[in-house]
């Protein structure tokens, strides 16, 4: 069991499964196929991200360094939060990027979403956590990898 402390962007308490991308997550490429199909779950469609391509990330803790790619990114996060198919939590090892931050803020303010976002969890977090690990998130920004 390993414990990490990050900064709370959007707080909450949660327990569940991790899905890990050790490279930047391209938001549009990741979500667009599932969102366009109006799917019930997000199956990652980013062909350039072997870490998470084809994986189901709905209701899980997406562990990542930052998001990358198109500036539709924030709106995409807001949309998948509104559709209730977003990851339950975004756990960033680095400082959150501007697109993901927009998405989290838009989801919280305009959609009353309870999506959790914690950033600056550190490189050690991202190298320690693996897809399938059980994760506990506490309201103070502590993340426990079981």
């Amino acid at each position: 069991m390993k414990e990490f402390k990050g900064r709370v962007i959007a707080g909450g308490e949660w327990k569940g499964e991790a899905v890990v991308s050790r490279q930047g997550v391209n938001t549009l490429a990741t979500f667009q196929k599932s969102a366009l199909k109006n799917a019930k779950r997000v199956i990652v469609s980013d062909q350039n991200n072997a870490d998470i391509y084809g994986k189901d990330i709905t209701g899980k803790a997406l562990c990542l360094p930052i998001t990358i790619g198109s500036t539709t990114g924030g709106l995409v996060i807001q949309t998948v939060c509104a559709m209730k198919i977003a990851p339950a939590a975004f756990l960033f090892s680095e400082h959150i990027d501007s697109l993901a931050a927009s998405g989290i803020v838009l989801a919280r303010i305009w959609e009353d979403s309870d999506v959790i976002a914690i950033d600056m969890l550190g490189e050690d977090f991202l190298s320690s956590v693996n897809t399938g690990d059980r994760i506990e998130i506490r309201s103070d920004g502590t993340v426990v990898v079981e």
Partner: peptide, 26 residues
């Protein structure tokens, strides 16, 4: 502004100042 290719052009080639805003924040 948003649109990643327009923001990077405006910042780099024109010397304007803009963060990589998301849709809606633009």
């Amino acid at each position: 502004w948003a649109e990643s290719s327009a923001v990077v052009y405006a910042n780099s080639v024109l010397g304007a100042r803009c963060n990589r805003n998301s849709g809606m924040l633009d």
